[in-house]
Nucleic acid binder design. Structure first.
Length: 273
DNA sequence: CACTTTGTTTCCAC
DNA sequence: TGTGGAAACAAAGT
């Protein structure tokens, strides 16, 4: 699941082992992933370029190349990057990047929702430039989050998932943060008090940081680059726990759709008003 | 077999 | 123009 903790986990896991390495080839099993340039030109354009940095913007993983260009990866639910995978039976491999030290980066994307971009300036890529402030960026203040949220009449859960409002909060983590802040997911953002929104802001940060410490969540089949699962799902209190007792009050966890996404919450701890 | 799961784009109403 | 809402996309697990 390419929510921030998974992407951030990949970035941290991979950085030390691929920085300074040079691309020598690419195999594309799903050419439609490559958005810019054409799949035919992609390999030639990438070949010979060295990975100078590994970064993240929202749910996008960004390879900074020595040429000044950026190789941008985005993969759908359960997608991940595997470094020299031992288990070749782990399929849904859409691209294989070969590096000059003989190692290989496998891009898994079972849902084929991902994309690959090679661009001179990522800020000119609409989907990057339209991202809102990073949830964990220290420059994002609670005050800015609160005032921004008050400009929306949509359900607070929908606002948290809006990447142009705040980047990096995925569905599961939005549910966990709302539970921790004791806020019902359908409440309109502009109906929340300053105190509630401030509480929510700090819980978002706490939840994301905790999930990164757990190396991401493997509720689906997400795997870290070394093939190991994350463990964040074991500390989830409501996400994907339909009908299980609320850890705070034992009321069964409920699920409702918001923006066609499953939203798990405790109807007792998270009041509607 | 219908439903859920994921994030983003696209389309429509206001 | 922008905001809210929903369908569509794709594929696999339950």
């Amino acid at each position: 699941m390419p929510e921030l903790p998974e992407v951030e986990t990949i970035r941290r896991d991979l950085s030390a082992s691929i920085l300074g390495k040079t691309f020598v080839g690419v195999t594309l099993n799903w050419p439609r992933m490559v958005q810019i340039p054409s799949p035919q030109a992609f390999e030639q354009l990438l070949k010979g370029k060295t990975i100078a940095g590994l970064d993240r913007r929202g749910k996008y993983l960004i390879f900074r190349l020595s040429s000044g260009e950026s190789l941008i990866l985005h993969f759908g639910m359960s997608g991940s990057l595997l470094l020299n995978p031992q288990n070749q039976a782990n399929l849904h491999i859409r691209a294989i990047f070969r590096l000059d030290d003989g190692s290989r980066l496998y891009l898994r994307d079972p849902r084929k929702l991902g994309g690959i971009w090679l661009v001179e300036d990522e800020n000119r890529l609409d989907r990057i430039s339209r991202l809102g402030p990073e949830a964990l960026d220290p420059r994002l203040t609670a005050e800015a989050f609160v005032s921004g949220a008050k400009g929306h009449s949509a359900p607070i859960k929908a606002v948290l998932l809006d990447q142009s409002f705040i980047a990096g909060v995925g569905n599961m983590y939005a549910d966990e943060a709302l539970f921790a802040a004791r806020i019902h997911p359908t409440r309109r953002a502009n109906s929340l008090s300053d105190e509630e929104l401030t509480r929510l802001f700090h819980q978002i940060r706490r939840i994301l940081e905790a999930a990164i410490d757990c190396c991401g969540a493997s509720i689906s089949d997400y795997r870290r680059p070394d093939g190991q699962p994350g463990t964040a799902q074991f500390v989830f209190k409501v996400a994907h726990r339909l009908s299980e007792p609320c850890p705070a009050c034992a009321t069964p966890i409920e699920r409702i759709p918001i923006r066609q996404r499953g939203s798990y919450f405790c109807p007792n701890c998270q009041h509607k008003s």
